[in-house]
């Protein structure tokens, strides 16, 4: 039985600009493969954010719409309402979703928008050079928390999955990670399940993917993956927080 691992047609041949070892590249592949396996490339519309993945329009090989910083869930809402048969997903970083776009993601979930959000949590602002994000861990040094995030000064990081899973409109909310091949497999299955639910016309699905930012964390890609395993998963537990399909 032949086994073949090669790039899906739903990714373009454009070399990805991401830093060495950045999780975006992996997630792009998981999303594209999941859509490919569901044979939904022809109806896919991806909504890219402002952040490192603002260039995702160059990488996903299907209809793409770029949204203003934080507004992807609103743009996705407009697209899905206009084309209910499309497979609409927003692809957002933690600055985009958990900071400026917090209202948009909460209300998309509240409304039970039949879209999927791929939420990349790497605990930092990447594109702008490593500033503190709402998901930056307490004590984590960044360009705007040079002495480590101080909870007394600016609070503790936000757990998006736990927050959104309290909303009735949320149908499937899960957190996955990229730190091991097994976790990557799990991430793909989870992302694919979210898309499946959307194709079945179910409610709002969000998959939070714990990812790395070697450049701005000041680590090698391998060290970054280890740091993710040892620090992020403890604060951001993996698992399914809501699955109305499994109830």
């Amino acid at each position: 039985m032949a086994i073949e691992y090669k790039q899906t047609q739903l990714l373009t041949d454009v070399p990805r600009h991401y830093c060495p070892g950045c999780g975006h590249g992996i997630i792009h592949r998981l999303v594209a493969e999941a859509i490919d396996e569901l044979d939904a490339g022809a109806k896919a519309v991806g909504v890219s954010p402002v952040g490192c993945s603002v260039f995702a329009n160059n990488y996903f090989n299907f209809d793409m719409v770029n949204a203003l910083h934080g507004r992807a869930p609103a743009v996705g809402t407009g697209i899905k309402r206009a084309r209910p048969d499309a497979l609409v997903f927003t692809y957002q970083g933690d600055g985009d979703l958990a900071s400026i776009g917090a209202a948009e993601v909460v209300h998309a979930a509240m409304r039970g928008e039949k879209i999927t959000t791929i939420f990349v949590n790497n605990a930092i602002y990447g594109m702008t050079g490593g500033q503190m994000a709402p998901t930056t861990l307490v004590g984590q040094k960044t360009a705007t928390s040079p002495n480590g995030r101080d909870a007394d000064w600016c609070g503790s990081p936000i757990r998006i999955c736990e927050m959104l899973s309290t909303l009735e409109g949320a149908y499937y909310i899960a957190r996955v990670a990229l730190d091991t091949p097994a976790h990557i497999n799990q991430a793909k299955k989870t992302i694919k399940q979210a898309f499946k639910y959307q194709l079945e016309g179910k409610g709002y699905c969000l998959i939070e993917v714990l990812s790395t930012c070697p450049t701005n964390w000041g680590m090698s890609p391998v060290e970054a993956m280890d740091w993710l395993s040892e620090n992020m998963i403890a604060y951001y537990p993996l698992g399914v927080f809501k699955d109305k399909g499994a109830m």
Partner: peptide, 15 residues
Amino acid sequence: GSCFRTCPDTVLSIV
């Protein structure tokens, strides 16, 4: 396929 799955740039392909 572990290498393929973790590569951010799909450098590797295995058959």
